[in-house]
């Protein structure tokens, strides 16, 4: 895309999720679905076909009782940065119709539902399973259409969708700031639904480049890490854990690789 945003204030929105605080309650998943008009079916038993922009994975340390430890890993879209112009996010590089792209202003990886023609190459490219295909047309229970979020367009069958970091909330915050004559938006003005819903306060959201934002400090913590960092996808979602087995459990290590 043409760089028409060179004069614009740019952000690098990202997330830090404290896994020591996460209880695996799933409130983030519910909030995400409600906020983003994520469709569902009467029977959601087939988890390989249900749409969960935010999905909580479970990981254990693999030890038998009583040494078993469990960790829950909420996984939104990682909004990968990739490395430079020649290696963008895995999904952006492959989409043949430019239906997914990196927003220059926010760093958010977008998904244009009306442009996606459903080839699903982006899904094959994403190692995080963050992308979901609409195997059915959305069917809302009677009367529920009235409760859909008017700021988010529902998706039709045959297209891919994924977490947008509640981009519509950014637009709303920007409009408000503009109306009030401000150029920048405040940290609390733009928060994702999952971050606000988390009862344990495990999810922090903000501008990773802004030293005033909480995520800036948290991502520099010695306990911060990202999932599958070695692949070079360069995600904008960081995790925190004081447990080494958790930090090592989200990536691959050869036997001879030293413990960190």
């Amino acid at each position: 895309m043409k760089d028409i945003h060179s004069e614009q204030k740019t952000y690098k929105f990202g997330m830090v999720i404290d896994l020591d605080k996460c209880t695996g309650c799933g409130a983030c998943m519910v909030a995400c679905m409600a906020e983003n008009n994520v469709s569902f079916r009467a029977d959601e038993t087939d988890k390989l076909r249900s749409i969960t922009w935010m999905r909580v994975y479970k990981m254990t340390n693999g030890l038998p009782f009583p040494d078993t430890e469990v960790c829950y890993i909420p996984r939104p879209c990682m909004h990968c940065e990739g490395s430079g112009h020649h290696r963008p996010a895995p999904c952006i590089a492959v989409c043949p119709a430019t239906a997914t792209d990196r927003d220059h202003e926010t760093g958010i990886v977008s998904q244009i539902y009306t442009r996606c023609f459903g080839c699903r190459y982006c899904m094959a490219a994403c190692p995080y399973h963050a992308r979901y295909f609409n195997w059915w047309d959305p069917k809302w229970p009677k009367g529920m259409e009235k409760y859909l979020n008017p700021d988010v367009s529902p998706r039709m069958r045959g297209v891919v969708e994924k977490c947008s970091f509640c981009y519509h909330r950014f637009q709303r915050a920007k409009n408000k700031a503009y109306a009030e004559g401000r150029r920048e938006i405040r940290e609390d003005e733009y928060q994702t639904a999952c971050a606000q819903a988390c009862p344990a306060g495990a999810i922090t959201f903000g501008d990773l480049n802004n030293p005033q934002h909480a995520v800036y400090k948290l991502k520099n913590s010695p306990n911060a890490f990202r999932i599958l960092e070695k692949l070079g996808t360069n995600p904008k979602v960081y995790y925190l854990s004081t447990k080494e087995w958790v930090r090592r459990g989200v990536d691959h290590y050869l036997e001879e690789e030293a413990q960190d």
């Binding site: 492959v94 043949p96 119709a97 080839c119 190459y121 069958r157």
Partner: peptide, 23 residues
């Protein structure tokens, strides 16, 4: 048959991402 929205197949030419192998 494989693509989810066959009627949008022409997008691959119209909105071509020249960096994609599929294009």
């Amino acid at each position: 048959i494989d693509v989810g929205q066959p009627l949008r197949g022409w997008f691959i030419f119209w909105h071509a991402n020249v960096h994609s192998m599929l294009t």
